[in-house]
Computed example of a mutant assay.
Amino acid sequence: MQFQRFVITAALLLAGAGSTWASGLKSLEDFVKTVKTGQADFTQVVTSPAKEGQTPRVKTSSGQFEFSRPHRFKFIYVKPFAQTIVADGQTLWLYDQDLNQVTTRQQSQVLGSTPAALIASAADLKALQADFTLTDAPDKDGLQWVLAVPKSKDGQLQSVRVGFKSSSAEVPTLEVLEILDSFGQRSVLSFAGFQVNPALSAKAFEFRPPAGADVLKQ
């Protein structure tokens, strides 16, 4: 599943140029400390390396994203195919509507040095630095950027770049997540309409397999 490869194994990082703009690391620190829940629409563009004599393959999908610290998040893919990924704090659920198939994994075994950890899990910058080497990246497109490189070399994730929109008078908002894996595949998630600290109950991250669905444990 495309999302699984890029956001879980790659998909919880969810979480300056002058006096007005903060640095990327400062924006990340403020985001982790201040934004306890979040909600946004997203568009994901996955680009695979070109094979010999061929052009790169590009796939685009879109949907909604929300999270609640610690350890809860949900991606609902609407286009081109309906898929749902839910982390409820204990279990990671992946539901493919077309196949009517649910895959479950123990959340603690599949998250950690992943983009999801950066966005939605860690309580502070120190916790993130246990799993990632974090550095400021050059400002681009009016955003402040952080480069996160996993300290563990065992996974498929090579690096993540996180772009924030922030000023000295505003809470940083997550704008872009760029994920590069060890196979050269690049996934760019762009977020729109980001809501800071909306009221989200724990029930929003509960998942029950639909009637008749095949449930596979991994």
Rank of each mutant, 00 (worst) to 15 (best):
F65K: 08
A130T: 11
T37M: 11
A199S: 08
G24M: 02
G142Y: 12
W21N: 07
G18S: 04
K79Q: 13
G63L: 03
T173S: 07
A116P: 09
Q185S: 08
L147C: 10
T135S: 12
K59M: 01
Q107Y: 01
V32Q: 14
S182F: 00
D181C: 09
I76K: 14
P210T: 02
A211L: 08
A130L: 09
P138S: 03
L13H: 10
L143I: 05
A204D: 13
K126G: 11
A82N: 13
S187I: 01
V110K: 08
F194I: 00
V102F: 03
A211G: 02
A50D: 05
F191M: 12
V160N: 15
R105N: 10
V86P: 15
T135V: 10
L174M: 14
T135D: 12
K151C: 02
E29S: 05
Y95W: 05
A123I: 03
Q109V: 02
A10Y: 07
S167R: 07
Q44L: 09
D214V: 00
P80S: 11
A22R: 14
S62Y: 05
E66P: 04
T47D: 04
S167G: 12
A123P: 14
A22P: 15
P49Q: 08
G112D: 07
L174V: 06
D88W: 02
Q64N: 13
Y77V: 02
Q218Y: 04
P198N: 08
S187E: 10
D181Y: 10
V160R: 15
K153E: 05
D88T: 01
Q195P: 07
D131M: 13
A82G: 10
T135W: 11
G16Y: 03
F75T: 00
R105T: 03
S27L: 10
D30P: 08
A211V: 05
P70T: 05
D124L: 08
E175L: 06
T60P: 12
A50F: 06
P56H: 06
D131I: 09
F73C: 05
K26M: 11
G142D: 14
D98N: 10
L177W: 11
V176L: 10
Q83A: 03
A87C: 06
N197D: 13
E29Q: 11
